[in-house]
Amino acid sequence: MQQSDFTDEELMAYADGELPEDRASAMDLALADSVELADRLALFIETRAVAKEAWEPALHAPVPDHLVQRVRELAAADQKVQTVSDDTVVAFQPKPSAPAAPPLWKLPLAASLALAVGLGAGLMLSPNSSGGLGSIEIAALTDARIIAALNTVPSGEDALLTDGARIAPIATFFDGAQTLCREFEFDRTDGMTIVSVACQRGGQWDVQMAVAAAAATDTGYAPASSLDTLDAYLSANNAGPPLDPSDEAAALAALR
């Protein structure tokens, strides 16, 4: 075997343990015979070792805390989104001590999202009304059909309203003040999906927050990105865990 039979790339691959076995065996034999070939090989072995060693100290430089912290924050935020099943039930966990989600006012909203504080029945159901998404109003829900749905429809099911809108309660929970709240999605007839939380105050459902997601996904549910805002709201208000179906039924029955 002539040493010139081996290219630089083959020698390098041999040095890196990447030469196919048959060529590597041939190389073993050729190396025993040729000092020159061994010298050529040594170049590739040495440059690898030197490169690795030269950059070794950089591996031991301390990683800034904020990077580690950021990974933890993202992981915590993910854990909530992950609990969204591919069906309809959105679960969330109480976060009594770890404020991983940023406060609501710090949230960079995705361009497709508009944060609407409050959505009165007029806002949602009467596109002709003067109120638009731009108006800010904290409103009690007055539409009887939405109230009826919130009072009766179990989480995970949905109800079609006569005009083609759809309401889907997602979860029922008590907030930090032990107020009964429901998270729900509302699909307007114009295709806008609104993710909202309403809580019981003085015998009526008060809308606490609403995020309008411009386009619902194929499944008809709001995209997960809109849940970031929801998460921030839920953690800021010490939302408790979702009630299980029987507790939810009992809590809703108590409203009537």
Binding site: V35, E46, V50
Partner: peptide, 13 residues
């Protein structure tokens, strides 16, 4: 790199 560091083919070994 070998050339810059003087690890040439003759002296590498």
């Amino acid at each position: 790199i070998g050339e810059k560091l003087g690890i040439n083919r003759d002296t590498a070994r």
